[in-house]
Computed example of a mutant assay.
Amino acid sequence: MEIYRELYFKGTKEQLEHFINNIEEYVVNDWCLEEKSKRWKDYLFFDYIGTEVEKSSVSIYIGDIDKESELFVGNIVPLEKSSLSIDEYNAVLLKFYNDIIQPYSKDNTDLTIIPPSNDKFNPLNFITKEALKKLKIFCAMANKATGSSHPSDRERWFDFICQTVDDGRMFDYDLLARFLQDKDYWGKKDENFNGVIGDYAWSKEQAYKLADEYEYACEVLEYYKKVRG
């Protein structure tokens, strides 16, 4: 399963400020840095207007450098089409990294720049081995036509959810929904198999239903732990 690449910059407040104030010097060729406006004063927008990848705007939120020790590419949006595929998004990110960030890093070695993350999904980058084990047990034994509605399935599902919250390592909504549908990971249901339990991926409908349940349950559990200890 392919996922969106990420790009992080870590350092002191002074190093991050230096990046913000000097990165424009490296915005060359088919790139331009948008002028800051009152509405978007807390963002840097790097627009690609060339032809090698999709024309897009790469955004970095800079409003938290007094509190945080990192910056990161928060989003990439197309300039001429309604949306980008994962492949297109990642291609723009790599173009941004190669054209602008790498030249900056060669001249400014103090700032820690973490190269773009892998575009291949590994669940252990998001949850622990114990949590993945519990998710696998749930997926193998659950009725894939009814999700978590059966009492035994619900118990295994809740066990997985609680484990991720206790670990402090959780999936986001869309990632979990896409993962549950991943036939390469979970297996593909044979056309001649009429059962509802087995080692195969979830349907889109059930995957997003489970993701909804997961997101809500995590929010409730995190709130409970915060206010009740």
Score class of each variant (00 low, 15 high):
T128D: 07
I127V: 15
G198Q: 01
V165C: 03
D199H: 13
S56C: 09
D174Y: 09
D190F: 06
S56K: 04
A140P: 01
K120F: 01
F171T: 11
F9P: 11
A201T: 07
D166L: 12
L210Y: 12
K209L: 12
F158P: 00
Y97M: 05
N21H: 06
V196R: 10
R156M: 13
E52G: 08
E70C: 09
P116H: 13
M170W: 01
W186Q: 13
N29R: 12
T128I: 02
V73Q: 01
N29H: 13
D30P: 02
Q181W: 02
F160N: 00
T51Y: 03
P151T: 03
L124H: 12
D174H: 09
S105R: 14
R156T: 09
E191D: 15
Y104R: 06
A142P: 00
I3M: 09
L111E: 03
F9W: 06
K67F: 08
G168I: 13
N118D: 14
C162R: 08
I127M: 08
T112D: 09
I101P: 03
K226G: 05
R5W: 01
L71Y: 00
P151I: 06
D153S: 08
R156I: 03
A142V: 04
K36L: 08
T164K: 00
F96H: 09
E205W: 06
Y4R: 15
F138Y: 15
K209D: 14
L175T: 14
K106Y: 12
D190V: 02
K41D: 04
C218W: 09
A211F: 02
I60R: 11
S69F: 05
D172G: 03
D47P: 02
L176Y: 08
K129E: 10
R178D: 07
D66S: 08
A131S: 15
S152Y: 10
E130M: 01
T128H: 05
K67Y: 10
V227R: 08
G63N: 10
D99E: 11
S59F: 04
F179E: 02
N192E: 14
K144E: 08
Y173T: 00
D212N: 14
D87A: 12
I100Q: 05
I113S: 05
V92E: 11
V165G: 01
I23M: 05
S37A: 03
K134S: 01
D42M: 12
D212Q: 10
Y185T: 10
F126A: 08
K226P: 01
S152H: 09
T51H: 07
F179H: 09
P103Y: 08
E155M: 11
Y8S: 07
D30K: 07
K67M: 06
Y43T: 07
Y8D: 03
A177E: 00
K67H: 10
E52Y: 06
F138R: 11
E213R: 01
E88I: 04
P78C: 00
I137P: 03
L16M: 09
C32N: 15
D212S: 11
L33S: 08
H18K: 14
Y61H: 15
D199W: 11
T146S: 14
M141I: 02
F138M: 05
K183T: 13
P103D: 12
R5V: 01
G50M: 10
I65N: 04
Y8I: 02
C139I: 03
L221T: 07
V73S: 05
E88G: 07
T146L: 11
E14H: 08
F126N: 13
F45R: 07
Y224R: 10
A131V: 03
G195L: 03
K136V: 12
